[in-house]
Design a protein around this nucleic acid. Sequence first.
DNA 1: CTTGGTCGTTAATAATGCTTTAACCCTGAG
DNA 2: CTCAGGGTTAAAGCATTATTAACGACCAAG
Lengths: 225, 225
Amino acid sequence: MSKQKILLVDDEPDILEIIGFNLEREGYEVFTAPNGRKALEIARKQKPDLVLLDVMMPEMDGMDTCRELREDPNLKDTLIAFLTARNEDYSQIAGFDAGADDYISKPIKPRVLVSRVKALLRRQVAIEPVATKTNLSGIVINKERYVVYKDGVELSLPKKEFELLALLASQPGRVFTRESILSNVWGNDVIVGDRTIDVHIRKLREKLGDDFFKTIKGVGYKFEP
Amino acid sequence: MSKQKILLVDDEPDILEIIGFNLEREGYEVFTAPNGRKALEIARKQKPDLVLLDVMMPEMDGMDTCRELREDPNLKDTLIAFLTARNEDYSQIAGFDAGADDYISKPIKPRVLVSRVKALLRRQVAIEPVATKTNLSGIVINKERYVVYKDGVELSLPKKEFELLALLASQPGRVFTRESILSNVWGNDVIVGDRTIDVHIRKLREKLGDDFFKTIKGVGYKFEP
DNA sequence: CTTGGTCGTTAATAATGCTTTAACCCTGAG
DNA sequence: CTCAGGGTTAAAGCATTATTAACGACCAAG
C-alpha cells in the first residue's frame, strides 16, 4: 500500500515548507505548488488524494483552480480543502459551491491541520472495496480477513508478507520485477536493500511451499499455482 | 433498484433548495418539508431512507420530530441526521438520545453534506442488516437493549465499548482497519488518537476474554468467536 | 453547590514481534 | 574457476501495540 498524496498550493514559501514538513512527517507524500497553474499541472500528473488550496493567490486564485480541478474527469474524486484567512466572509465562500470538501482557516496550526487532513482522508478511505478472495490450487487468500489458507489450514501472515503474496498472486504466472515489487509493497520512496525482498520470499516459501514462488534471475519473482 | 429517498426538513427555503438540488444531482429522490408536522406527514407516506432534520425550527423542533419519527414502527429503520449550528454542544447529547444517527454541522458545505449522506446510506446497507441480536460462541449482543451477555451473564458496556464490539462482531473474522473503526464508531470528523482504540479494545478483552479480539499488527483488529 | 463515580481520552512507558540489515553461503553461466 | 545474483540466518533496529495512570467532562445523589 503506497503513501497517500497531498498537493499543497500557496504562494508563500514559508507556509509550503512548514505545512509540507508536518504532513510528510505524518507519512504523506507531499507535492507543492506556488500558484494555481503549477498546481493543475502537478495535479494532472500525480493525481493527489487531497489538494490543499490557498484561497488568496496572485494570478489564478483558489476558487478558479478548484473549478478547473473539478472539471478534469480524472480528478473527480480528489478531495479539495481551502485554506482561508480567518475573517474572510465565510458564508460567501461556503455559499459559493466551487466544490470544496472542507475549509481550514488561517492562521494554521500544524497539529490542527494534520488532524483535519487525516479526518478528510479517512473519510475517503472508508469507502474501501471489500470483497477479495483468491483461490489458487489449495491456496486461498482472503484480504478481508487478512488470512491465508493452505489446504484448509489457516495461516496469518504478517503485513508485509501478506501484501507481497497478495501482489504476486494477483497475477499468477506474471513476473514482477524487484522494482515493481518495491514500489507496490513498500511504496515509491522507501529505501530498502534488495535482500529484504529475498527474506520475505523465503518466509513465504517456508510457510506455503517452495514450489509456488519461482525466481527469475536478474528479473524478479513470480507466483505459480 | 429504485432511488433512495431523502426527506429534508428546514424552515429556511434557501437551504431546502440548495441542499435539495445537490442531493438530487447525486441521484436521490428528495422531499422537503418546512416544519416538523409536515415532515411527519411526508415521512409516513414516503418512508424515506434518510431524514435530514434541522434542529432549530419554529413549532415542533428537530428533537421532537425525531422522537415522533422513532415512535412510528414503520419508520424504525429510517436514518435520521441532524443539521446543527456548529457549537451547540448540548444538542449533541440530547440528539443521540432522541435517536439520531449522525450530526452535520452548519454552515453546511454541499459537498461535505453529500459525502456524509452517502456514507450514512452506505452504512445502512453495509452494516445495519446484521440483526440487533447476535450470538457468537457464548457472546450475545443485543443492540436494542445495549446489553451484552457472556455465557448468560449480563454485562452492560459503556457506549463506546459497546459500539466497538458491535462493529467488530458485525462481521466476525473480518479485519477492521483502525481507520474504518474510527469512522464507524467515532464518526468522520472526530479527532482522536490511535491509542484510544487500543484502550477500548483492552477493556473489551478484560470483560469478554482475550481470545476474542485478535490484533493484526499494522492493520487493525478482528473479532473471532 | 458539593461529592463521588463513571466514561472517554491522552500521555508515558513497557512489551511485543515484525522488518531490515549484514555477513556469509550457494549456485550456475560463461 | 570466477563471480554476480540469489539464498540463508541471526540479531539489531524499529514501529506498532499493550498497559497503566491520570485528567477532565459529565452526571446523579446528597
